[in-house]
């Protein structure tokens, strides 16, 4: 198992380096665009040249990349073009907000998907299954930012039970923190539950038709015991793998949701970065989101492998 963990970690590092390279090249591929973005389109050629020299943008691209990467590894992501604040500390401050939002949303998605998926699978091709499948199809087509808008309309503007936006740290005021995060988390979680529900249902149907489940049933085990003890546990591995992908999707979705609910997270910083053409901010925040997503994927991959001894065996031999 340790070998498996080591190989996964070894593969993780080059992936991160490669994604950072892709991001860096994409943002810097148009020469002079960073300076124009920071100084405005009316900037003179002299001003642009001075700015590029000051920021080190007149150096060859690979030198710039290595410099950026080297500093980034030490937590120094440069300073914002706009407010001249260090980007690194800003990220450290914002990451917990985004992580809390994504985790809450992921929990909500699972709380919806697992029981409904199991119920649909158990009642396969009967009325309950059909109703749940229709619900999943509908949820899968609702854009999260529209659900967010509707939730604000109902819960904040009409019934007035929740605040429409803002943020309070959990450590300062847990209740206020949750009341501010519940709508954003619902918007992301409810929409994400659709895919998870479908996967849960499909996988459980497959597991429930396997021989060992028939044997357990034939031996007289109660259906809910069979589902909980045998079927769910086996379906969980596939579910986890999809869950990681879904978590990545969800983490991408925070850009819009944080903007709507005025949450000071990393997603909002991505948006600030692009709207202000603030490339150090955009690069660092986009890289942070990508690294978190990749780390979540790797973690789940490891958990799934540990849960399924067959995989450990096959993979360590390969």
């Amino acid at each position: 198992m340790w070998r498996l963990i080591a190989t996964r970690l070894a593969a993780f590092v080059p992936t991160i380096l490669a994604t950072s390279l892709v991001l860096f090249i994409t943002v810097n591929v148009v020469p002079g665009s960073a300076a124009k973005a920071a100084l405005g389109i009316d900037a003179t050629a002299q001003a642009i040249a001075r700015f590029e020299h000051e920021q080190g943008l007149d150096r060859p691209l690979h030198v710039q990349y290595l410099d950026w990467l080297g500093k980034g590894l030490r937590g120094d992501f440069g300073t914002s073009f706009q407010n001249h604040l260090a980007v690194g500390p800003e990220l450290v401050m914002r990451l917990p907000v985004t992580l809390e939002l994504a985790t809450l949303a992921f929990l909500i998605a699972n709380v919806i998907a697992v029981p409904l998926g199991a119920l649909a699978a158990y009642h396969h091709q009967r009325r309950a299954d059909r109703i749940i499948s229709v619900i999943a199809t509908i949820l899968g087509a609702v854009p999260s930012f529209w659900l967010a808008t509707v939730l604000i309309l109902i819960l904040a503007l009409t019934v007035k039970v929740l605040p429409a936006g803002g943020y309070a740290p959990f450590t300062e005021d847990p209740l206020k923190n949750l009341s501010l995060l519940i709508m954003p988390a619902l918007s992301l979680g409810v929409v994400s539950s659709a895919l998870l529900l479908r996967i849960m249902r499909a996988k459980l149907i497959e597991v429930l038709s396997s021989d060992y489940i028939h044997t357990a049933m034939a031996k007289g085990a109660a259906p809910n015991v069979v589902i909980r003890r045998h079927a769910l546990r086996n379906a969980l591995i596939t579910f986890l793998t999809v869950g990681a992908v879904e978590f990545g999707w969800l983490f991408g979705g925070v850009v819009i949701i944080e903007d709507i609910f005025l949450l000071p997270g990393v997603g909002q910083l991505v948006l600030v970065g692009i709207i202000n053409r603030d490339y150090p901010v955009l690069l660092a925040s986009a890289l942070t989101v990508t690294v978190v997503v990749l780390a979540a994927n790797m973690l789940v991959d490891l958990i799934a492998a540990i849960l399924d001894p067959r995989q450990v065996h096959v993979r360590s031999r390969a």
Binding site: V22, T26, V27, V270, I274, T290, L294
Partner: peptide, 16 residues
């Protein structure tokens, strides 16, 4: 490319 969250990649591409 697949490992980036789609909307994030779209935003970064729009920056370029």
């Amino acid at each position: 490319l697949f490992s980036f969250p789609a909307i994030l990649l779209a935003i970064v591409l729009m920056a370029a």
